[in-house]
Design a protein around this nucleic acid. Structure first.
Length: 874
DNA sequence: GCGATCAGCT
DNA sequence: CACAGCTGATCGC
């Protein structure tokens, strides 16, 4: 292990093997063990914790072994340092100064094995440059920036975020800026789902501090009145305490154990914290003292009373700074209270939210995103990781990936795709890529493919291919191109590339990319002119909506503010804050439930499929809700008998959701649905209540059966009856392209045809099934309106939203509006007017249909219209 | 018998 | 679904 000294003179250069051997010798009082070579890294090693082409692992102490002595720890939380213990002697732990102190003093890890690295300073470890930058998580938490020597003097760059909360300041970090376009980013995907809604930390801190200020006034130790309890864990969320102390001008009481940790963190002498209970009425308590937080919050008023009595107060106000909260109400965070006890659930997250994650990825434009948090990241990574990665489709460096994809093709591998792991053998350290189950013929294959695909075609005579060759090439192309590409198109590609497969695929993706980029850029231009604020989750919408929001006791912005920054509410600009708020209330969670992916294009576009699925009968959208509603109405009389056994669950459910008897039958219905499983029921409830609550301003859940105008539902029913929406999912042999299509031969194909397919695809997980549906879709087009095939292909290939790749058309608001004009036969100004009134395009469409006494579906948009409209906005 | 891991609880 | 972490039971070398 030669420690290659870097070209820079000043940088500290470390050799973990040498460090380790020295430490081990001291630790075990033995002469240096003869450790000359490392065994291969086990194939079971989670790749989300391994930096490619190195023996560096991050937060992977449970997986420690002989294969490495270089371990990195991002921060001091047990789920990350798990595996470390006082006897740790398996390698060197690199971490921040603060984390190092915590390891030594709290976890009692021998300092021999801990190497503290400075922040914002490059060091070279085993030939790789490493920089630690702040992660905005807990004290001492860092992100690691790795620069790994690669081929021909180039470096591969990797960002490992550890746990982090994105901050706009990161964009101007000089070290991080050098990692734009990294090979991969290992991302803290804890809240990588739009359903987790939480505000800026400042807002939450503000909320708490304001409440203490107003409710508690200045603290005087003589008057024991209101006791404030703040739930925290060992490390983390200190900012809240510091801010309370600063804003409310008082100390914060902590127990000796917490104080010890705080001293390590350097807050010991700050005067902010005290171990003397009498010095403060703000006391820090353990995480679950005020109630259990998972899977949903259940207050523990009994415990609160004990504490109140014990400490001699007459009222207790508790704060639980939870990672997120389901219930972000109009103007305040969720409060539970009983007698003289109050518990405020304050969303306070030290992880990035969905928008922040996307913003970070958008900023870094890495070639790959590797989720580090989530179910099974360690095991079945591909499935989960893919799902996560889709959230960042369009933000990653697609072009680089395509090149890599092509390179993989060139090398004869069809699965290069998202594989970041070592594919070649050229890292600074030898023998690193045993990870893939040894494929002895691997290298041979590479050379063979190289020669066959590059040298075989005769440049003079490109088109002379016998059938067998042609068939072979088409088959290979089929493997490389998306499934919807027709044989004809493939022949076309082959023809224009002189029979060169690589060229064909390359051309294909270049064209696609070009098309995609043009569409995207024009769409952005269109929607930016219509939108007040994009992307920046921290910004406040212009137009004074903060001030005019019905905000009461504190100056924390309404929860609407951060919800309203989410997509969907983009089309309007001159919309009043009230409308805006209501719209968000009604729609955001619906979107979340239906497909979280909708967000992922950012707040720039609407998906036309969604638009259609709202206008058209909507069979798949909310099957659970639909059927529940029916049941709820029909089975009203059965309710009491049927649900007796769930009596307790219903009560508990109602208590948890803060509900009244009016919700009882709904609760019963959900619980019956879930066989009494409260967790599941709550999940359903929280996912759906915004949908169900319809126009209800207060956000209360009311039986939607009673809310919906009857006319509305009857329209839906009648439409549902006379439209066969699922024929496309028939197996290919049963689907009749001419008879099962929704239009007839010679006519131009309606967009409805695509929209239905997209809708079906949305819920279809099986690839084969999905392919067959698309196939059916194209068969009808080919049979009835061949001229619509090409536009359809383009409409299908346009990448729209994460999880909707090649599935959903994503276009700007103005196009949707024109679509509406066509579909509803009304004017743009009328639509705008109605939009302002109703707050949602879907509602507008509904209304249009009602004013037209719509008995038939709206006149379908034709595929060509959509396609041309799309071209127009280029 | 020990440490690592897990279920359950706070 | 997945904010942290402790404890005691269980697994496994």
């Amino acid at each position: 292990m030669a420690s290659s000294s870097s070209s820079t003179t000043k940088t500290q250069t470390l050799d973990s093997t040498r460090l380790f051997l020295t430490a081990l010798a001291t630790f075990s009082h033995q002469p240096n063990p003869p450790q000359l070579s490392f065994p291969p890294i086990p194939s079971t090693f989670p790749h989300s914790k391994l930096i490619p082409k190195t023996r560096f692992s991050v937060d992977a102490f449970r997986h420690a072994g002989d294969h490495s002595v270089s371990y990195f720890l991002s921060h001091f939380h047990s789920d990350h340092y798990g595996g470390l213990s006082p006897n740790w002697a398996k390698g060197i732990v690199f971490c921040s100064q603060t984390t190092a102190r915590l390891l030594n003093e709290v976890l009692k890890v021998s300092s021999l094995f801990v190497v503290a690295l400075p922040l914002d300073e490059a060091v070279v470890i085993d030939g790789c440059e490493v920089v630690l930058i702040d992660a905005n998580h807990c004290p001492g938490a860092v992100q690691f920036l790795f620069k790994v020597p690669g081929l021909n003097g180039k470096f591969e760059r990797y960002v490992h975020t550890g746990d982090f909360r994105f901050s706009g300041l990161m964009k101007s970090d000089p070290f991080l800026c050098k990692f734009v376009g990294s090979d991969a980013i290992f991302l803290d995907t804890t809240y990588c789902n739009p359903k987790f809604v939480f505000p800026l930390q400042e807002e939450s801190v503000n909320y708490i501090a304001s409440l203490i200020e107003t409710a508690g006034g200045e603290y005087k130790s003589s008057v024991k009145n209101v006791l404030f309890l703040v739930a925290t864990y060992v490390i983390g969320k200190e900012k809240i305490l510091l801010e309370i102390a600063r804003r409310c001008n008082r100390k914060v009481h902590v127990d000796a154990q917490k104080m010890a940790v705080l001293r390590v963190l350097g807050y010991g002498e700050s005067g902010v914290f005290t171990e003397d209970e009498c010095e403060s009425d703000v006391h820090v308590v353990g995480w679950n003292v005020l109630g259990e937080t998972w899977p949903y919050f259940r207050p523990n008023f009994v415990k609160m009373k004990e504490i109140m009595v014990e400490k001699g107060y007459s009222k207790v106000v508790g704060f639980v700074p939870t990672g997120w909260t389901y219930e972000v109400k109009r103007n305040k965070f969720s409060v539970r209270s009983k007698d003289s006890f109050e518990i405020h659930l304050v969303p306070y997250s030290e992880h990035s939210n969905y928008d922040e994650l996307r913003e970070y990825v958008r900023f870094l434009k890495p070639k790959h995103v590797i989720p580090t948090v989530g179910l099974d990241v360690e095991k079945l990574d591909s499935k989960h990781a893919n799902k996560m990665q889709k959230h960042f489709a369009g933000l990653v460096d697609e072009m680089a990936n395509k090149k890599e994809f092509l390179r993989g093709f060139l090398l004869g591998s069809t699965e290069v795709g998202n594989n970041v792991e070592n594919e070649s053998n050229n890292g600074p350290i030898e023998g690193m890529d045993q990870e893939k189950e040894a494929m002895p013929s691997d290298k041979d294959t590479v050379h063979m493919e190289l020669s066959s695909s590059l040298q075989e075609p005769d440049p003079q005579n490109p088109m002379v291919l016998n059938d067998e060759e042609a068939e072979k090439i088409i088959q290979e192309l089929r493997d490389c191109l998306p499934t919807w590409v027709t044989q004809e198109q493939m022949l076309d590609l082959i023809g224009s590339s002189g029979g060169d497969i690589v060229e064909s695929v390359s051309n294909f993706y270049e064209r696609e990319t070009e098309f995609h980029e043009q569409v995207i850029s024009s769409t952005i231009a269109v929607s930016e002119s219509q939108t007040s604020s994009l992307c920046d989750s921290g910004s406040i919408p212009k137009g004074g909506s903060v001030k005019s929001s019905p905000y009461e006791s504190t100056d924390v912005p309404s929860s609407q503010e951060y919800i309203s920054l989410k997509p969907r509410n983009v089309i309007k600009s001159g919309i009043s804050p009230g409308k805006r708020a209501r719209n968000t209330n009604n729609k955001v969670n619906k979107k979340v439930k239906l497909n979280s992916k909708l967000d992922s294009r950012g707040p720039k576009q609407l998906a036309i499929t969604k638009f259609f699925s709202k206008v058209l009968p909507d069979v798949q959208e909310t099957p659970e809700i639909g059927s529940m509603d029916e049941q709820n109405l029909k089975d009203e009389s059965l309710l009491h008998d049927d649900t007796k056994s769930y009596r307790d669950e219903i009560d508990q459910f109602l208590q948890i959701i803060d509900g009244t008897e009016s919700l009882e039958s709904y609760a019963a219905t959900i619980l019956r649905k879930t066989n009494g499983d409260i967790n599941e029921a709550l999940n359903i409830y929280y996912c759906n209540r915004e949908v169900r609550s319809g126009k209800n301003e207060a956000g209360l859940v009311v039986d939607s059966g009673k809310m919906k105008p009857t006319a509305d539902s009857s329209v839906e029913v009648s439409l549902q009856e006379n439209v066969k929406t699922t024929v496309l999912s028939l197996p290919p042999e049963k689907y009749n392209p001419t008879e099962d299509a929704c239009w007839s031969c010679g006519q131009r194909a309606p967009y409805l045809h695509l929209a239905r397919t997209f809708d079906l695809l949305e819920d279809e997980k099986g690839k084969i099934k999905a392919t067959s549906m698309l196939c059916n879709m194209f068969r009808s087009l080919l049979a009835l309106s061949p001229e619509d095939v090409l536009p359809s292909v383009y409409l299908c290939t346009n990448k729209i939203a994460a999880d909707h790749e090649n599935v959903e058309l994503n276009i700007g608001g103005s196009l949707v509006t024109s679509a509406l004009e066509d579909a509803c036969g009304t004017s743009r100004s009328k639509i705008r007017e109605m939009y302002n009134e109703l707050g949602d395009l879907g509602d507008v469409a509904q209304a249009c249909r009602q004013t037209q006494k719509l008995l038939a579906p709206p006149s379908p948009l034709l595929i060509k219209d959509v396609f041309f409209a799309l071209q127009k906005i280029r």
